[in-house]
Design a binder for these strands. Structure first.
Lengths: 216, 216
DNA sequence: GCTAAACACGAGCTATCACTCGCGTTTCTC
DNA sequence: GAGAAACGCGAGTGATAGCTCGTGTTTAGC
């Protein structure tokens, strides 16, 4: 067999029609709904198809298996995150006073998680398939790095290992706030304020009285 | 049928031998191990039996179904909690300064959760059976009430609704710390310190400068 | 309009898992 | 030591869930 096709497996010579594109998106929406209701393992493919109003066979015309659904949904969520809220952690906020910086970072992140509950489910579910977990972990690492860079600007003399710990803690506190908001849906405002209070009080002694590079 | 036995269903006229008692405990241990590894839904009864070194049939000689295993394990964990660490939140700590109080409360709680990882899995798993969830929620409420009472002693003039929010936040922060410790097992000390720092800084402005009832 | 391919269906196949059953072994009670 | 009951086994059963397949319908390109 000399010089065969080197692509490991001709991926998919399939031209999708507009109708198919719609169906696929519709199925991903249905999957997101079912996943948030019963988790990944608890979601049966038949239930997802039913939620989308199609037959099981149709589902498998667009996704080779259940895992692929989670993978594509995870990818879609991550991309949505990056295009919509990836700026929340950008450097533009670092010149703000701590109170406003916490506002500027926390609010968009809460907004995203509130509007995409499947994000949280897939990210923290114990039964999420490995490929999705890997993607989310890469994302987690990227977010962490952004936080570290931000902190490093305020704390140029602090060893990186300590900054890493603070960054992980900050992210953990944010997740705790997310959980509190999810558990107390009728007191969102109160717990949103409380989350910001926690972050402010934790960070204020660390970076509150630092002089930023570009300030007087 | 006049005046039949009123017990809804003769519960269990079964005398267990010492060997059986050992087997049951051994099966619960195995279940705790498997649950922590793959969660409740992911744990097959055959896997639990295998982990315990017995046959599936033997398992069902001691537990009527899979749910009963989780229920008994949950009960055992809650009882273990109450007898071993229920004192950690007792009123004896409230006269300590905040730093030491945080130590006195956090350390035993971390210790328990560290030695009983199944506790966390069953308490937060999305697939835990309802009966177990209910028991844990009752427990959660009891712990919350203890925290509220403790806070109320420091803050007699604060409305109860606000105290509830602070108590929930404190508990959420503790859970976040637990997660961080679980994710970074090689830096336990650092994150333990960080958790205490978070709690101290959050609570210090609230109760730091209060005059306790029995103090000068 | 005609053909091929994409889309859609839903009954059914297969593997897995909670759980059972018949039978053999150990332990208790007398 | 004999009978009963608890213990123990593991192949087997029924249900469920992931996935397939044969067939029919809609769309794209000519």
């Amino acid at each position: 067999m000399p010089d065969q096709e080197l692509q490991p497996a001709a991926p998919k010579p399939r031209r999708r029609q507009a109708r198919g594109e719609r169906r696929a998106a519709q199925l991903l929406d249905a999957a997101a709904t079912v996943f948030t209701q019963v988790g990944y393992a608890g979601a049966s493919t038949n239930a997802i198809a039913r939620e989308a109003g199609v037959s099981p066979g149709t589902l498998y015309q667009f996704f080779p298996n259940k895992e692929a659904i989670a993978v594509e949904l995870g990818g879609r969520l991550l991309e949505q995150w990056r295009t919509s809220y990836g700026e929340a952690l950008s450097a533009e906020n670092i010149r703000l006073p701590l109170t406003e910086m916490v506002d500027a970072v926390v609010d968009p992140l809460l907004e995203f998680n509130f509007q995409n509950p499947a994000f949280h489910v897939l990210m923290h579910g114990p039964d999420t398939p490995g490929q999705v977990t890997d993607a989310f972990e890469a994302f987690h690492g990227a977010v962490l790095q952004r936080i570290e860079e931000l902190l490093a600007l305020y704390l140029p003399d602090t060893p990186r290992s300590e900054i890493t710990i603070v960054a992980n803690t900050v992210l953990g506190l944010f997740k705790a706030g997310l959980d509190l908001l999810a558990v107390h849906p009728d007191e969102q405002e109160a717990y949103r304020v409380e989350l910001k209070r926690v972050l402010f009080r934790y960070l204020d002694p660390v970076i509150g009285d630092c002089v930023l590079p570009g300030q007087a």
